[in-house]
Design a protein around this nucleic acid. Sequence first.
RNA 1: GACCCCGUAGUUCAGCCGGAUAGAACGCAAGUUUCCUAAACUUGAUGUCGGAGGUUCGAGUCCUCUCGGGGUCGCCA
Length: 547
Amino acid sequence: MMHTFIESSFQQALDAMGIEHQTIAFERPKVAEHGHMSTNIAMVLAKQLKKKPQDIAQEILSQLQYDTSFVQSLEIAGAGFINIKFQPNAFHQAMQIMMGKKRDLGKTTVGSGKTANIEYVSANPTGKLHLGHGRNAAIGDTVANLLEWSGYKVTREYYFNNAGNQMNLLAASIYARYRHLIGDNEYQFPEDGYHGEYIADIAQQALDLHGKQLAVENQDHIEICKKLGEEWCFSSILETLKKMNIHQDTYFNEDSLFTDGTIASLLSELKEKGLSYEKDGATWMKFSSIDESLTDRVIVKSSGEPTYRLPDIAYHRTKFERGYDLIVDIFGADHIATIPDVKAGIQALGYDVSKLKVLIYQFVTLWDNGEQVKMSKRSGKSYTLDELIDEVGADVVRFFFIMRGAQTQLEFDLQIAREQNDKNPVYYLQYVHARICSLIQQVHDHDKQVLEHPDLSTLTHPSEITLIGTLTRFEEVAIRAAHHLEPQMLAEYLREVASAFHSFYHDCRILGSEHAVLSARVHLALLTKTVMNNGLTILGISSPESM
RNA sequence: GACCCCGUAGUUCAGCCGGAUAGAACGCAAGUUUCCUAAACUUGAUGUCGGAGGUUCGAGUCCUCUCGGGGUCGCCA
């Protein structure tokens, strides 16, 4: 936000030079000697004006009219950068503005009036959530939060299929375990069946509810097992998500697309538009006619059953029909192949595909004591998300899953996650909040007056200025993270805030200082608390009052 | 074989729309507390940004090729 103090001055200078209006990029130099802010505008204009960047910079500076109570100095440096140093007053003004926003600090309006749909987790009710789902959930929920803070009206959606092959396999697995429970040890367990312990639990439930009434194998009895399985799995999933502070708004059942005729009408429309054709008794989608790099795929098997592509396209179409301005899917890397097909289908149906953003996250590998924890789905011995949350806590789980970019493979180190100390980055952030809460408590005990009308001009220590400068970036970081759909940008930033605060806290004594200094510093601490609290809230992580 | 993601310090990773001397954490070495939570702070060492070309005032960032790791290529989801 600091650039707002100087931006219009630059625009006016460019106007005076007869240069067309254009966006001026301001950035924070890495080196302190380069000032608080710099712009490369002179270099950008060099080609267009056919002059040396240094000369252009000189010209801009000679035209520039600025408020000297805000700007301390302007310098031309390097290849033609203009470096800006602000007066402490500028930081105090910025702080004043932020203090006025109180709990809404960080909320912006870039997305106001717009709606967004974020689909995440979307696990079918065939088992417990595993670590991959955890990463999906943490990313999805945080992206949803970020968009909400940017002003979007957000719908959090969960898509599931309780009618497919996998569900039949679940039912067959439960039924087999049930038969074993009633003594039919010869009964064959389905090949590729689900082996987790929970299957036996559900079978036990079937036994408790129905006794030996299901002993004869028939469709009704298997259906009972399926229903029990679905309910059990879903409640397990929801419980796990609840622990992660995740609550979704809409649960979209794939089956509804078939029962309400959406699929049928899509099929006839595709046929009408010449986007599908019959071959070998199956219906194929003509992806190759939409995009040369794609291959035609079966959408209805010769058996009459649809492949997953058909409902996927139909489902995404409903999202477009529901009128969202932004549609976000959170997918694991294993689903990467379906995305071009869905996009092509949507585009061919006449929708604006650019509204659809697909966030792909890479796999998670779990490490403990320097050894990789193998996760085998077949044996059912995979480490579940639930176990992970119980072991290290939901805050740690959420943070670890978003602290790296989604596109990098995540190494989840249990050893570090378990530590409740300085090695664990989550505590570093939360400690700032707890420290400030404790401080405020003590200030309250001593002197209630300090909280009124602080004189910020006493904040001149380099650590104070650095902290204020860091806090001023909160809004733009939140916007940028939302725009790029990258939660880890916010996580990185909060670490910077924490570091700046701890330095300030170390350098600048608060309690016992003279009244004016005490008051101003307390307000700086309070503002930091707001930023940390709001930032952690976006990440779905708690802000403890004490640790 | 084709396509997608990744490759940055000993390790795990940041690095915005291409900007100046590539950053952080952990680990390692050395310090800081009669005082607000030492779960903190300060200082130091450590780099072929996988490699080779190219684009330009300027490349970790963009393009081409190449090597290495992961993923995906079904009338499975």
